[in-house]
């Protein structure tokens, strides 16, 4: 069980480290923002960029509005910035866009019951796999451990020892 607890420790440490990871920061996103769209307030602009990286350009294949040159992506970028300037929080901006375009606009599906199968799969596969691996290794070791000697074998050994 030492192995398992150490595994749990490593996983725990990593989970803690990654809990602090803002979405999209591990993989860089390059941008198609135009100079005229950029907000004067750097804090607001940074929030706009963070939001844009997680919003889908609806007419593109798997591109965020931050990456896309499409007109619709530009419209959405401007819209996000308008809402931010109007004082919306990040969540309010996202809710507003979802109400207009549906969940399709979110590159990261919501963490809710409807998407349970999606979010739970990695952790279920990992735990099930770990349990299966440990159980099968342990059971095989038990099952196939060296069998006890039969009485005849014991007798033979005794005879050999006696000969000496």
């Amino acid at each position: 069980m030492g192995f398992l607890s150490r595994l749990a420790l490593v996983l725990g440490v990593c989970a803690a480290l990654f809990a602090a990871l803002p979405a999209g920061s591990l993989i860089s996103s390059a941008h198609a923002v135009n100079p005229d769209e950029v907000l004067d307030d750097p804090a607001l602009e940074a929030r706009a960029r963070e939001l844009s990286a997680g919003l889908r350009c609806l007419v593109c294949q798997n591109q965020s509005i931050d990456d896309s040159n499409a007109d619709l992506a530009k419209d959405l970028r401007v819209l996000v910035r308008e809402r931010l300037v109007a004082g919306d929080t990040n969540d309010e901006v996202i809710d507003y866009l979802v109400s207009r375009y549906g969940e399709f606009v979110l590159l990261q599906p919501r963490f809710d019951w409807a998407n349970l199968a999606l979010w739970a799969t990695p952790i279920i596969v990992l735990i099930a796999g770990a349990v299966f691996a440990l159980v099968s290794v342990a059971s095989r070791r038990k099952a196939k451990g060296p069998a006890a000697l039969s009485p005849e074998e014991e007798a033979k050994i005794a005879a050999l020892v006696d000969e000496r």
Binding site: A23, L26, I27, R56, N62, E103, L106, L107, Q108
Partner: peptide, 14 residues
Amino acid sequence: KISVGAPFFDLTFG
């Protein structure tokens, strides 16, 4: 219709 994009994979694969 939903999208599963880079943020999801960063958060799970990473």
